[in-house]
């Protein structure tokens, strides 16, 4: 117990004295995570909306693929991206392996289906009658779509939050394609693994505390964003 308490205390001091290594790791984590989130949302939200609205022949198959993507083991995604980007792989010429680009790529592949799936469900959950009503009130196609999306905004925010949570907590894939290189691809999660392996528990506790704080702050932000919408439902 003493050990843990001591670790926590040292972790606090590392954080509040803005220890250089810790700050670098946090900065990189945020940069990679936010980039991955933006790209995942850019891919996932339109995909989810499209699947919710469009009727086409192989729609059920497409949704099945989407669900598979949502539940797919992230570490396997990491493995596949690694094999693609490795020197001996087809995309080896890109030089992306062991750079933040590879990490963002893997995380987008992991998180985009999650965002798409939740978005799709949120949009589908909007009362069908509202679509009819919006048209009847004179909305053109774009306006109808925007109105439906507005109605689904609570669910869509949750979709993005779920994606961000996934991205922030990813370890295996990011370790495999990023390499945990100090100063360039070392992020909070991989650093936690490294410091734990090295027995530097106060550092890994510091990493853990920062991760928890980031997750909490993001959730808080989301509740604020949902704000009025949460009350109305």
């Amino acid at each position: 117990m003493n050990d843990i308490w001591q670790g926590v205390q040292e972790a606090f001091s590392l954080i509040f004295t803005a220890d250089g290594e810790v700050m670098r790791i946090v900065a990189l984590s945020l940069a990679v995570s936010v980039s991955a989130l933006v790209l995942s949302a850019a891919v996932g939200i339109p995909l989810g909306i499209w699947l919710a609205f469009r009727r086409f022949a192989s729609r059920r198959l497409a949704i099945a693929f989407l669900y598979t993507g949502m539940g797919f083991p992230p570490v396997v995604v990491g493995l596949v991206v690694f094999l693609l980007l490795s020197r001996s792989g087809p995309l080896g010429w890109s030089g992306w392996l062991y750079t933040p680009k590879a990490m963002v790529l893997a995380q987008v592949i992991i998180a985009a289906p999650i965002i798409a799936g939740f978005t799709m469900v949120a949009v589908m959950a909007v009362n069908r009658n509202l679509r009819r009503q919006a048209r009847s009130l004179g909305a053109n196609n774009l306006q109808v779509t925007m109105t439906m999306l507005q109605e689904a905004r609570v669910g869509m925010l949750v979709a993005v939050l779920a994606g961000f949570g996934r991205i922030l907590s990813e370890v295996g894939a990011v370790m495999i394609v990023g390499g945990n290189l100090k100063g360039s691809t070392q992020v909070l999660t991989t650093a936690t693994v490294q410091f734990t392996r090295m027995g530097l528990f106060e550092r890994s506790i510091a990493m853990g505390m920062i991760l928890l704080t980031l997750t909490f702050l993001t959730s808080l932000l989301w509740v604020l964003l949902q704000g009025g919408a949460l009350q109305e439902s």
Partner: peptide
Amino acid sequence: MRRRVTMVFQSPALFQRSVEKNVAYGLEVR
């Protein structure tokens, strides 16, 4: 042509926003 005709349904399909924003909808889209 569609905008010259409107329909009210048996169960009012109101949007998840305030009353006045609902009422304003038809003016806003036009």
